[in-house]
C-alpha cells in the first residue's frame, strides 16, 4: 500500500500499458528460462545485491534476537530515565546523551534508551514488512490464479476489484479501519492486514498473465482431458510453476511494505506507542533536529538501511532472473511514499 497513490497507481495496474509490460518480463520469460544454478551464479557476481542480501539477513537476525540483545545490555525501550534529560526535556549532555549506558543516546522528553528503541523497532518494521507481504502474496496469487485460470466473469470481477483498489485512498482507509476495528484487535495485525490488502494488485496481475500462458500450454489441457479437478490442476500443476515468480515478487515487495508501516507511523496512525517504531521515532526526531540531531540519525539510518538492502537484493535477484540482462523495467513499489 502506498500513501500517495502515485506509487500504488504505477505499480502495475489495470492499464495494459505500464506495469504489465514489465511484469510479464519476469513472469513470462525469466523464471522459466533461467535454471537455478545459473541464477545463483549470476547473483553471486552482483556484489551490490550480495551486500544487500547480507545486510537484510543481519537485520532479520537482529530482529529475532532483539529481546536477547537488549536484555544482555540491560536496557529496554520502555523504562524512563528522566535523570538523563536536561530541564527542557532535551537529552542532557552532548550528542543526544550518548554514554556508556545509552549507546545511541536517549529519547527526548522520556529518557528512554534509543539503542533499545532502534533494536526493538526492527521487530515492528520487519514483522509488518514481512507479514504484509505474505498477505499480499497470498491474496494476489489466489486471485491471479483463479482469474487467469477461469477467465470470463471471474477475471472480470478480479479486474474490477483491482480498479476499485487503485481508486481507494489507502491512508484514509487505514485511519478509518483503525478507528472502526474493536479496541481489543491487535493493531500490529491490523496494520499487516491493511497494508497487505492494499498491495496485492501487482502480483495478481503477474500471476494471472502466467496462468493464462500456462493454460494455453499442453500439459494443463492434457490434465483437464484426463479428468483432473480444477483444484488439482490449479494447485498441483499450475501453482508450482509460479513459485519462483512469487518469491522474487515477495522480495521486491518487502521494502515497500516496510516503508508503508514507517510512513503510517510517521503520520501517527501506525503502531500505537510505546511499541517502538522507526517511523514514529523519525517523525518525533525531525522536530528535534535543531536541538538533538543524533535522535534522527539512528532510526533514520535503520529504516534507510533495511529498505536499501532489500531493494538492492531484490534488484539483483530480478536482474539475475532476466536473461537479457537489461534490468527490468518494472516499477517496484517504493519504500515509503512521496
Amino acid at each position: 500500500m502506498s500513501l500517495d497513490r502515485s506509487d500504488e497507481l504505477v505499480a502495475p495496474t489495470s492499464s495494459a500499458a505500464s506495469g504489465a509490460v514489465a511484469d510479464s518480463a519476469v513472469a513470462d520469460s525469466a523464471v522459466a528460462a533461467v535454471g537455478r544454478v545459473s541464477l545463483w551464479r549470476r547473483l553471486a557476481r552482483d556484489r551490490f545485491a550480495l551486500v544487500g542480501a547480507v545486510v537484510a539477513v543481519a537485520y532479520a537476525l537482529v530482529a529475532l534476537a532483539a529481546p536477547l540483545i537488549t536484555r544482555a545490555l540491560g536496557v529496554d525501550p520502555y523504562t524512563y530515565d528522566l535523570d538523563a534529560l536536561g530541564p527542557t526535556g532535551a537529552p542532557a549532555g552532548p550528542l543526544g546523551g550518548i554514554s556508556a549506558e545509552h549507546w545511541f543516546g536517549v529519547e527526548p522528553l522520556t529518557g528512554r534508551d534509543l539503542f533499545a528503541i532502534v533494536v526493538m523497532g526492527s521487530r515492528t518494521s520487519l514483522l509488518v514488512g514481512l507479514g504484509a507481504t505474505v498477505v499480499s502474496m497470498l491474496v494476489g496469487t489466489v486471485l491471479g490464479l483463479v482469474a487467469g485460470y477461469f477467465g470470463g466473469w471471474v477475471d472480470w470481477v478480479v479486474a474490477r476489484l483491482v480498479d476499485v483498489l487503485i481508486g481507494l485512498p489507502a491512508l484514509v482507509f487505514m485511519i478509518a479501519v483503525g478507528a472502526v476495528a474493536p479496541e481489543w484487535f491487535p493493531r500490529l495485525l491490523l496494520l499487516v492486514l491493511v497494508i497487505g490488502l492494499f498491495g496485492w494488485s501487482s502480483i495478481a496481475r503477474v500471476v494471472r498473465g502466467q496462468v493464462m500462458a500456462l493454460r494455453a500450454s499442453g500439459f494443463v489441457r492434457a490434465s483437464q482431458a484426463l479428468g483432473a479437478s480444477h483444484a488439482h490442476v490449479l494447485f498441483r500443476q499450475v501453482l508450482p510453476n509460479l513459485a519462483s515468480t512469487v518469491v522474487v515478487f515477495a522480495t521486491i515487495s518487502i521494502p515497500g511494505a516496510i516503508g508503508s508501516e514507517a510512513a503510517l507511523s510517521f503520520l501517527g496512525v501506525g503502531v500505537p506507542p510505546p511499541t517502538p517504531s522507526w517511523g514514529r521515532s523519525i517523525g518525533d526526531a525531525v522536530t528535534w533536529f535543531s536541538v538533538d540531531p543524533v535522535y534522527l540519525l539512528f532510526p533514520g539510518l535503520a529504516l534507510f538501511g533495511v529498505t536499501l538492502a532489500f531493494n538492492a537484493f531484490g534488484d539483483g535477484l530480478r536482474d539475475a532472473l532476466d536473461p537479457r540482462g537489461g534490468g527490468s523495467n518494472r516499477r517496484r513499489r517504493r519504500g515509503g511514499a512521496r
Binding site: 520502555y78 523504562t79 522520556t110 485511519i175 478507528a179 501517527g268 500505537p272 506507542p273 510505546p274
Partner: peptide
C-alpha cells in the same frame, strides 16, 4: 498527547498497574 499518555503509563506501571494506551482519532 501520546507522549503524555506514555508518561502516565510508565508511572502507573511502577505500582504494578497494567495500562494499555488506546489512541483514537
Amino acid at each position: 498527547t501520546l507522549a503524555k499518555a506514555q508518561a502516565i503509563q510508565q508511572g502507573l506501571e511502577r505500582a504494578g498497574l497494567k495500562v494499555k494506551i488506546v489512541p483514537q482519532a
